[in-house]
Every structure is written in structure tokens, then in C-alpha cells.
Design a protein around this nucleic acid. Sequence first.
DNA 1: TTGAAAGCGCTAACAA
DNA 2: TTGTTAGCGCTTTCAA
Lengths: 328, 328
Amino acid sequence: MDNDKRKTIEDVAKALGLSKSTVSRSISGKGRISADTRQKVLDYIEESNYRPNPLARGLSESRTYNVGWVVPGDDHMPSLYFYQRCLQGVLRAAVKADYDVLITTIGDGDISGLKRITENHKVDGVILGRSLYKDDSIVYLKEQGLPFVVVGSTEEKGVIQVDNDHVAACRELASILRMKGVRRVSFIGGDMRLVVTGSRLQGFKEGIGDVRTQICMDCTDDGKVRRAVEEALASGSDCIVCEDDRICQIVMEKLKDMEVDIPADLKLASCYDSRLLRNYRPQITALKYDPMELGKRSFETLLAVINGQEVEGRMLLGYEVVLKGSTQ
Amino acid sequence: MDNDKRKTIEDVAKALGLSKSTVSRSISGKGRISADTRQKVLDYIEESNYRPNPLARGLSESRTYNVGWVVPGDDHMPSLYFYQRCLQGVLRAAVKADYDVLITTIGDGDISGLKRITENHKVDGVILGRSLYKDDSIVYLKEQGLPFVVVGSTEEKGVIQVDNDHVAACRELASILRMKGVRRVSFIGGDMRLVVTGSRLQGFKEGIGDVRTQICMDCTDDGKVRRAVEEALASGSDCIVCEDDRICQIVMEKLKDMEVDIPADLKLASCYDSRLLRNYRPQITALKYDPMELGKRSFETLLAVINGQEVEGRMLLGYEVVLKGSTQ
DNA sequence: TTGAAAGCGCTAACAA
DNA sequence: TTGTTAGCGCTTTCAA
């Protein structure tokens, strides 16, 4: 069934009595060709099922038509899910540009996977997923001069970055809570080494205004979160804002144990919505982003960079404050 | 800082006063070369930081040095995590063989991503992750004649497959429970359309022997699982075996609600261990597999196929029965 | 508007 | 053991 050999552009040219270059031009649309011949070629290609060899094209154009998708390999679940959705967006955008996605992971300061695909010239650019801590990847990419964009938060200056607008989102969430008349609100946050954590805290502070607050950061394990909840209640908070979905989940379990009723006794909100929160009742007021859109935009931005276009250094995407029963 | 142009094999050859082919041979180790010249070349390459262009090599060898990693794009969390670990294994094995991994997703009967990388010849072979339902991907790959292996369970015959030995694992788990003297055990299982579900049930039946059982399958949502738990208790079961980690999680929540004490009132075991079960007390007796190993082996197998070697049609990997407090 | 031919950087058959 | 040379399949000048 399989043809012995793959069809080449030469086969197409011969079959049509044309030259390779004419066929090439017909496919790419570059240069001058009569609409007539072009259509003829396109038709023939369609029916004969010819596919150009991307290696040959790449060699000739000095392009791989691949981008690298580089994410932490040892991450926790929620961020895994986030990246998965992001990747979907990247893939969709990539297909449209006739690009494919090469995946590699980094972690624990080990960026050898990134180095590999870079130095072997397997990609035209890289999308760097950031959720963890500082590593050398950005410095490395800069000195390599390979086009790249960062998706997610980074403190690094002078890099092209596509992110959710965490500050604005949290500011709005906090100000809504303030307008709802909360008297004292506890903010329970995670790892302060993460840039996103700082952004959320900042937004919260900006939005909450002069309402009394209690802030507890670096709650990186279940125990710390639970203790933070106890403190919040002891100090008379009537509202808890969780910095992310994981924290929110633990908070809810703790509140259940303590038989605190939401929202009657206490209002609850999360700065990040995810599947983790989906099945709880009452449903949780939370900030919602669109990871697929994030992925899509990051690819589009990267492609622009690859193609030598000017792009803005920082692109902040929108958000939704989804008000649910937990803050009624 | 960046060199204007990339170094080529020709540059290396000139610098060393050798020919391209000698350099090429030195790198690949193929053909005859004196150990002397070879070392000289290797040394120079090392210090001059030369990297061969994989596109050029690929074009010449008719290889891409890429494999496709094809997984469902719309999956639930536990399987996401599983694939993530698998992918780590694939990546590690791939690097050793100088391969990279192109990722694409399929879902909802849509295999266009797979078709894309196949027909555009962007990969030398494909690793197909199976956790969802029947789709056309296997049929498609067969007729394309592209090397591929399936990681995970499939009912499809005549494909090369790397999987955990679910049947044997569940058989052993069940027989251990039997020997522990359980009198009546409920098996709560998920989607019967999944091959793995059937395998686990089969293993359970084989291992549980003549102990009285109650089997409740297709518990695909929380409600069904909870009802299954009620039935189990109503019918006097002293043990529940959960077909996977997600089910086990719901069962535990339900048991907590019902104030059933584990293991005093009821023993509990899961046919699949994962992070989901990590934080519960008592810890859950469960079957443990090694997803990274699965990934690693699947790449190695695929590479063998690509290289035209004979491989066994079905490779079943080991497992561990990890006995914990929940069945004490 | 189309064709001829050089070149992308590498491998491998063939010569030396 | 090493060098010469002809491809791999495409793009892109340069000519016609």
C-alpha cells in the first residue's frame, strides 16, 4: 500500500511538466506565478497527496518549524493542569502557522534539556513556562540569542512575557469584598519566592483599602495553612482570601473540620480558580483566567519574534471575577 | 557575542586540514578512522563548540530524530499526572539516543494532530498514550506504516504495547486481602469502556477466590461512587477495593462522612496509587507502578522498531503491592 | 511568468 | 585510513 518512496517536489514538477521552482512558488505563494499554474499545482498536490519535506525546507530556509515548550518537570498538580491547558493553546496556534512543538522539561536548576534543543538547533524559539523558582534558563536564552517568550510571571526585566494580570485581578476581587462590607479579612498565601504570589498579595493590598487585614504568607504545607485558618478565626476575621486553589482546598477542609459555615460565618474567595475547587458547595468565588488563550498568545508572540517583528515586552491578559455562593 | 553564522562541518574540516567525511566519521564513529584523528576531531569540536545541524543530518539520513508523544488533550487530572511522569521517562531515554520529543494531543475522535506530524514527516515514530476510548489513531498508524508503540492498555491486537501488568497486580492484591481473612469485599470500579478497568476487575476476580464479593462498575461520577459505598456497607462488606485513585478518594470522603473507621470497621485498598492518596490517614494500601519506567521502556521499544529490530509485541512491567494502615 | 542551477549542511558510496 | 563527490528535497537568486 505504501509507496516505495516518498513523493518529492521533483515528482510533482515532472508530472505537471513544470520546474521545481514553479511548484515551490505555487506552494509558498512567494514570487510571481500565474494564478492559473498555481491552481493547477495546488490541485495536483491535493489529489496526489504530496507533502513537502519539512527537513529539506528547513535546511534551505534555516528554520526548523518547531518551537520548544519548556516547563518544569517536577511540578505539582494544579500547575500541571494549567500547563496542559496552555499547551493546548500553543498547539492550536502552532498548527495554524505550520509549526510543531518540541517538549522538554527543566527542574531543580537543571536546564540541560533546554540547552539540548537550543544548541542542537532543533527549534526556532522557545516558550518558557514559569511557575517555579529562579533558574538560569532566562539568562541562558538571552546569551544564546534564541527568540523566546515567558508565559507566566517573572521578575526578570527585558524579556518578552505573556501573563495574566494578577495584580489587577486581585485588586478587583479585594475591592469587591470591601464593598460587600467585610470587616476583617485574612489573606493566606503560598511561597513568596514565586513572583505570582507577590503580585497577588500586592493586588489584594491595593484593593482591600482600609479594611483591617491579616496576612499570612509562605503557607507551603497543609499544616501551615490550617494554622493560618485557626489564627484567622481567632482574630475574628469574617473573610478569608486564599492565594491559590490548593490553599483554598485545604482551607475548606479545615473549615469543615471546625464546622464553620460558609458564607454565614465566614466568606471565602480564591485568587485562582481551577478544577480543584469545582466540586465544593457552596461554590467558591474565585478569579478565573484563560490558560488556553495564554498559550495561544504566547505562541503568536514568539512567532512574531522569530519573524523579526517588533512586539511589546509585556502582554497582560484579562480575567474574570466569578462571584459564587462562598461570598454571598 | 553570537557568531555571525553557525559553524558547519566544513569549518571544522578546514580548521583541522581534514575532509568533511573524516569529520563526519569521527563524530558518528561509523566507518574506519584512526583513533588518533578521531580524538583530534572530537577535541576540536568540544572546544570550538560545534554542533552538527540535525536538519542536514536528517535530510541525508531520512530521519528526523524526533518521536511523537501523542496523548489525550482533554484528560482528567490523575491521568495527566501519570502522563507527565511517563513523559519524563520518555525524555530521559530519548536524550540518550539523541532524539527529541514532539508533542501533540488527540481527543474526541479528532486525530488531526497525529495526522499532521505523521504526514508532514516530522517524526520517525510515535508513542501513543492510551487511557481514553477507542479512536482511529491505531488504525491510522497501521495503515501509514509509521513505527509506533502504545503505552497503556489497549484491546487492539497486533500492536506493540508497553503496559503495567494490571491483571497480575490486582490478582495479587486481592489474594492478599483474601489471606488477611476478609469475609465480604466490594469492588468499586470506573468506566468499563476502558480496557484497564476490565483488566483490574479480572485480576481482582482471579485473586479474590471464593470470598463473597459485590461488584459495582461504571461509577463514573462522585454520586455513583458514594452510592456504591452505601451499598457496600449495607450489605455488610468488611473491605472495599477501589479500581483507581480517584474512586478511592471519593470513597474515603464518603466513609469520613459516614464516620466509618478505617481499618477497624472496614479495610480499604486501591488498585492504583497516586499523589491523590498521599495525604490521607491511615495511608492506603495500593498498587504502585512506575510510570517513568513505562515511558523509558516505551521509547526504547519504539527506537528498536524504528531501527528495524525485532521486538516483542507486548511488554508487561512490574508492580508493587504496598501494604499500609488501611488494611491492617 | 517560468526555468536552471547553486546552495542549505550533512552522510555514504566510491576512489585513492 | 582519508578524500572526493554525489545526493537528501527544498528555496532562491539569476537568466531567459
